[in-house]
């Protein structure tokens, strides 16, 4: 220890004299505060007032007061409602198209006008919500399940398992998602069975490494906590302590990333569909609508703008929700109290 090597340079000084306490050359009054000013309280008494709150309950309390959360949550509720019961929002059949209305502007009952094929743009956008949202939600679920499991195992057990899983993740990470998805979607098995599910599987294949990395980091942090050691000393097996203590404590960053990524997957689906590789044309989706509106961009730009607007608002609200959740779950802002 360097401290000990340089045996204190001031060793010659009369330390004993210093350490006997100092006496001031000024007179210092001995002040005692009146006892009733600061009544003595019990040492470390438990405050029994107030409702007990778990970490999640506390996060929810701070979350529900944030305008960012309120706005994004309302928007998401509307989008989910549109996806589940599109009939509530439009009574026009999006598949009954009349060529005589081709490229016509808005009219009563058709607020966004018609596309090149003479279909109602508003009705198509409403009915296209379901496909986009399904891709977003299911991709997120798969990505969290696969990435979360792999990341948690890699982080918790470490060693060679970690090395192999981390390299595997790096290989997928090195491929840009859209580029990789283009190639996978061209494979015969996927090309011939195009559906919402092929898109979901493709996106999940390239999406999991990101969640795996985040989970691995969070698990690494939680793994060494004293409460995990304590649970092992109580007799809990390693696997169970991973499930019962480590994973619940590593969830917060994963939830944040998953929420933000949900929006990203919706964009990825639209990109693939726009390129003609995503959803089959029979499936109504924003990506397909944007793709088919592309050729009419000069004649009828609004035909492209409307589905694009739906897409942007949905994606933006998921990203805003992710931000709000991040603020509420940020461990730094909640430590100390």
């Amino acid at each position: 220890m360097p401290e000990n090597q340089n045996q204190n340079p001031e060793a010659g000084l009369p330390i004993s004299k210093i350490r006997a306490g100092k006496v001031s050359k000024y007179t210092i009054p001995h002040f005692v505060a009146p006892l009733d000013e600061t009544p003595l309280q019990g040492v470390d008494a438990v405050k029994e007032t107030g409702k007990p709150l778990s970490m999640w309950a506390e996060a929810w309390r701070s979350l529900r007061k944030r305008p960012l959360f309120i706005i994004s949550a309302l928007l998401i509720i509307v989008v989910i409602a549109i996806a589940t019961i599109p009939g509530l929002f439009t009574s026009v059949d999006p598949t009954s198209c009349y060529l005589e209305f081709s490229n016509e502007g808005p009219s009563s009952g058709h607020p966004m006008g018609y596309n090149f094929q003479g279909c109602d743009v508003y009705a198509r956008a409403i009915h296209g919500t379901r496909a986009s949202l399904m891709v977003g939600i299911f991709t997120t679920i798969f990505v969290v399940l696969i990435g979360g499991t792999i990341g948690a195992l890699a982080g918790f057990y470490g060693g060679w398992l970690d090395t192999i899983l981390a390299r595997l993740g790096d290989i997928f990470f090195a491929l840009p998602m859209v580029l990789g998805a283009i190639i996978v979607m061209q494979l015969p098995a996927f090309r011939d069975n195009k559906s919402v599910w092929t898109v979901i599987v493709t996106l999940a294949i390239f999406g999991w490494p990101q969640v795996a990395r985040i989970t691995r980091g969070a698990v690494l942090e939680a793994r060494d906590a004293d409460f995990v050691k304590a649970s092992r000393a109580l007799g809990l097996s390693r696997g169970k302590s991973l499930l019962k203590h480590v994973i619940p404590n590593a969830m917060a960053p994963v939830i944040v990333v998953a929420t933000v990524n949900l929006g990203v997957y919706i964009v990825a689906e639209a990109t693939l569909s726009f390129l003609g590789l995503g959803l089959p044309f029979e499936v109504m989706s924003w990506g397909n609508d944007i793709s088919s509106a592309q050729s009419q961009l000069r004649n009828n730009p609004m035909m492209l703008m409307w589905p694009a607007l739906f897409l942007s608002v949905t994606v933006l609200s998921f990203i805003m929700l992710g931000d709000a959740v991040r603020d509420a779950l940020d461990p730094k802002s909640r430590k100390g109290n």
């Binding site: 350490r19 006997a20 306490g21 100092k22 006496v23 001031s24 210092i28 009054p29 001995h30 002040f31 005692v32 505060a33 000013e37 600061t38 309280q41």
Partner: peptide, 21 residues
Amino acid sequence: ERAEKVIVMYKGQVVESGPAL
């Protein structure tokens, strides 16, 4: 040991102060 004067604070108030010893 180190100070001429010691101030004791409790719950945001100075409850006692005076020469250390």
